[in-house]
Nucleic acid binder design. Structure first.
Length: 800
DNA sequence: AGCACGCCGACT
DNA sequence: GTCGGCGTGCTC
């Protein structure tokens, strides 16, 4: 007897373990580890992942697997193992981890039906309108449930549960001639003279030597209606069947093939150890630290080429917002149809198809966002993480994994190199490189031998003192006007969307807050409404102060919308495009805006985060950062690092080609080292400064972090539970660990629920993870009963 | 997570 | 007496 050990699709503490199921005879030998199966679970049937086959179990009551949901495993041995490790490291459930590894299309949907029994009486017939069954949802909608309940109880009907697989393959209808040519010739003669279209089609088949073709295409080519094709199928001239088709998101794009470029001395020096690692099949993590424009991508491309030559595969991770067509083009241009692309802007079906190309070994390279690190390659030869410092590599939902750590784990398994590339490496990575954990490779020169553009830092306090109350300093404004005149392009960067961040009464200082969250509400001009960005609450814009009835209400803090308005007012002749979440939600909007700008149809590109990456247009000669400090004052120990990285990146947008570029940075804190050193493009000094700050604060990379957040609608409950957790942890970690808390979370209330935190800073704590699991177990009853929620984030990036 | 089971109060 | 509210515990 073969037994399958199954991880069941129920993300909860009590079910985070294997369940044993008998494999029915008819599936014997077909069901393998890594496959999805449908299994009975209590009264329901649900999806599960087979993780192991065994031939004996001590479990008394054991049920049969209903059926397999895959023909071949969707998780291989490596990924199953990786899942174990990830669940441990991130303190999450195995199912959650498995789902994170697979395209969403593989997450099952469940459906409940009520089915009539054969000998059921007439009343039920009416309820079901002569049908055998009805979906639970519809019965609910039509208010039939009470009546049907009775029928179920009296045994006239039963509830059945379905596992619905969402992984739909797209099919297309193809036809193929199945008779010899001479037979067709004969037929041409024999057809009645009024069968004009059939003759035309047979003639076309003969002449074009037609092989297999999509039915619709054939009709078009032969210029006959679809019915003619049907007629010939009936007559046995053509055979018809359905074949699987891939949804290709880049179907109508042609990618120009490129060949390897000659490498600079520095690039060659960087290539050497990478090639060594590839050839000797030894795992090593490289930190490729190269200034913007130093040609990191060419190093990636040539390393991948070597990997392909060895018959192996490559994964390239790119931050989600950097996955533009230009980026894809660079890889498709070099490796053509050997490339699959994976990111969240593809439809569920497209994601599934790209994933299947990988699984079926039809591609050698995958370029994708975070989750592409799980690409099911079996002979990985290299993993590349571009812009490795990007925080989007950390998943903010369960399982809270970091793609960098997963990549290194996979690199160890496959004994292949992992390359982390950045112009502004994360402190964690650079520190590891300094310690020799990673192998540091440096590209210090830009390929075009052009220095970085000069950066001038403008003190906005001075501007204010000088009487300039606008959001543009005199220097920046003059420079924008100058570019307009020269017909060169300007990029303006502001890391805040919307219109105004908050509104305040000038008489009494009242600031409008969300009634459900501890956060000020944001004014949205387009909908003319106040919105809470955390719970979605909306309300009208007050015309007078609710506290003192004054009508002196002022809008504070500027967003991209407001800047756009100002620009239109000040420079009516300028053509402006705005790019932020609000203007790029529609599919393809992102590309359209960039193409528009690239074609020179706009003078000024105004945007948030998303314009900081990848823009490489020759006519950009001015970059303005409107407010460098928006990020700097966030309650986040990485604030300085993020500011430095962003400023460096944005500056890199200017003067990448023949024309010289310059950068203007506006700030209220020009003396801050992250702004000063970003202006000087001095990463090394920034690293040293920031490292000493981190050391003083006992933050990464000197300490690891674990963040426990307790959420409850009752403030007192939230505090006491956090306190108990803190005390429990204190007695379970060594003296070297530092415990902070309980403290209120940076946003103490969201959606009427209070948030308290406990932060653990530690170096080596072998017992910490098991202690954290114990906490979850202990509070599990209260969590399901009382709305208490406890989240654990190992190495958090978002402290909120 | 969902679902059944079982116990208690409120009403036909 | 029965309906339905929710607290409790289990799912191979």
């Amino acid at each position: 007897m073969t037994i399958a050990q199954v991880i069941v699709d129920v993300p909860s503490l009590g079910t985070d373990k294997v369940f044993d199921y008998r494999i029915p005879k008819k599936w014997d030998g077909m069901i393998q580890p890594g496959m999805r199966v449908a299994v009975p679970f209590g009264p329901r049937s649900i999806q599960g992942f087979v993780i192991r086959l065994i031939d004996h179990t001590d479990i008394g009551k054991i049920k049969d697997i209903i059926q397999p949901l895959d023909l071949t495993p969707v998780l291989n041995e490596e990924l199953l193992q990786l899942g174990d490790w990830m669940a441990r490291e991130t303190i999450s459930y195995k199912v959650s981890v498995f789902h994170a590894m697979l395209p969403v299309a593989m997450k099952a949907k469940y459906e409940k039906m009520i089915r009539k029994k054969d000998d059921a009486p007439l009343l039920l017939e009416e309820l079901l309108k002569n049908k055998q069954e009805i979906s639970w949802k519809e019965a609910e909608k039509r208010n039939l449930l009470p009546a049907l309940y009775k029928e179920i109880q009296s045994g006239n009907a039963e509830v059945i549960y379905f596992v619905k697989d969402r992984a739909r393959k797209k099919l297309k209808r193809v036809v193929e001639p199945i008779v010899r040519k001479d037979e067709m010739e004969e037929m041409l003669q024999a057809l009645p003279s009024n069968a004009f279209n059939q003759k035309k089609l047979v003639y076309h088949l003969l002449k074009s030597n037609q092989g297999m073709i999509e039915a619709a295409d054939l009709a078009k080519k032969a210029e006959v209606p679809a019915s003619t094709i049907k007629a010939l199928i009936k007559k046995g001239v053509l055979s018809e069947h359905m074949v699987e088709e891939y949804r290709d998101p880049y179907e109508h794009k042609n990618f120009e093939r490129t060949s390897p470029l000659p490498l600079t001395k520095e690039q060659q020096a960087a290539m050497k150890p990478i090639l060594h690692s590839i050839e000797h099949q030894s795992h090593e993590t490289f930190l490729l630290y190269g200034v913007t424009g130093s040609g990191k991508t060419e190093v990636y491309l040539q390393a991948i080429q070597e990997v392909i030559k060895q018959g192996k595969e490559a994964i390239v991770l790119v931050p989600e917002i950097a996955l533009t067509p230009q980026m894809v083009e660079r890889f498709k241009g070099r490796f053509g149809s050997d490339v699959a692309v994976l990111h969240s802007r593809l439809s569920i079906g497209e994601q599934y198809d790209e994933w299947r190309k990988i699984q079926k070994k039809e591609v050698k390279v995958v370029v994708g966002a975070r989750s592409a690190v799980f690409a099911p390659f079996e002979h990985l030869g290299i993993i590349i993480i571009d812009e490795e410092h990007e925080s989007s590599y950390k998943q903010e939902e369960i399982p809270r994994y970091h793609a960098r750590e997963v990549a290194i784990k996979r690199g160890e398994y496959h004994r292949c190199p992992v390359i982390l590339g950045s112009a502004t490496p994360s402190l964690e990575s650079f520190a590891r490189a300094q310690k020799g954990v990673y192998h540091l490779l440096t590209l210090s020169k830009r390929m075009n031998d052009r220095g970085m553009p000069p950066v001038s830092v403008v003190d906005m306090r001075e501007e204010l003192r000088g009487g300039n109350r606008s959001m543009f300093s005199t220097e920046l404004f003059e420079k924008i006007k100058d570019r307009l005149q020269k017909e060169e392009q300007t990029v303006l960067f502001l890391n805040r969307r919307g219109h105004s961040t908050f509104i305040m009464c000038r008489d009494c200082g009242y600031v409008m807050q969300c009634p459900h969250c501890d956060i000020s509400m944001t004014y949205h001009r387009s909908s003319s409404e106040m919105k809470c960005h955390y719970c979605g609450f909306q309300t009208g814009v007050p015309t007078e102060c609710p506290e003192c009835s004054s009508n002196h209400i002022r809008y504070f803090g500027m967003g991209t919308q407001k800047v756009e308005e100002e620009l239109v007012k000040l420079l009516p002749e300028a053509r402006i495009v705005r790019m932020d979440v609000d203007t790029t939600t529609r599919k393809g909007a992102h590309e359209r805006i960039l193409e528009h700008f690239q074609a020179g149809k706009a003078d000024i590109l105004l945007g948030t985060q998303m314009i900081a990456k990848g823009l490489d247009f020759p006519n950009i000669t001015l970059v303005g950062v409107l407010s460098a400090d928006t990020m700097l004052h966030l309650p986040d120990f990485r604030a300085a690092e993020k500011t430095f990285q962003l400023l460096t990146q944005v500056s890199g947008r200017a003067g990448r080609h023949e024309l010289l570029g310059e950068v203007v940075v506006q700030t209220y804190t020009p003396e801050h080292y992250s702004i000063q050193l970003a202006a000087m493009q001095d990463y090394q000094r920034f690293y040293n400064e920031e490292m000493s700050m981190r050391k003083i604060g006992s933050y990464p990379p000197f300490y690891y972090l674990a963040l426990v957040t307790v959420i409850h609608e009752d403030l007192l409950q939230a505090v006491t539970v956090t306190e108990k957790i803190s005390n429990f942890l204190k007695s379970n970690v060594s003296r070297e660990a530092i415990l902070l808390g309980p403290v209120a979370s940076p946003i103490p209330k969201i959606n009427n629920r209070y948030r308290y935190q406990c932060l653990i800073k530690y170096k080596r704590e072998p017992n910490l993870f098991s202690a954290l699991r114990k906490i979850l177990e202990h509070y599990n009853p209260q969590a399901s009963r009382d709305g208490l929620s406890i989240t654990i984030d190992i190495n958090p990036y978002n402290m909120m």
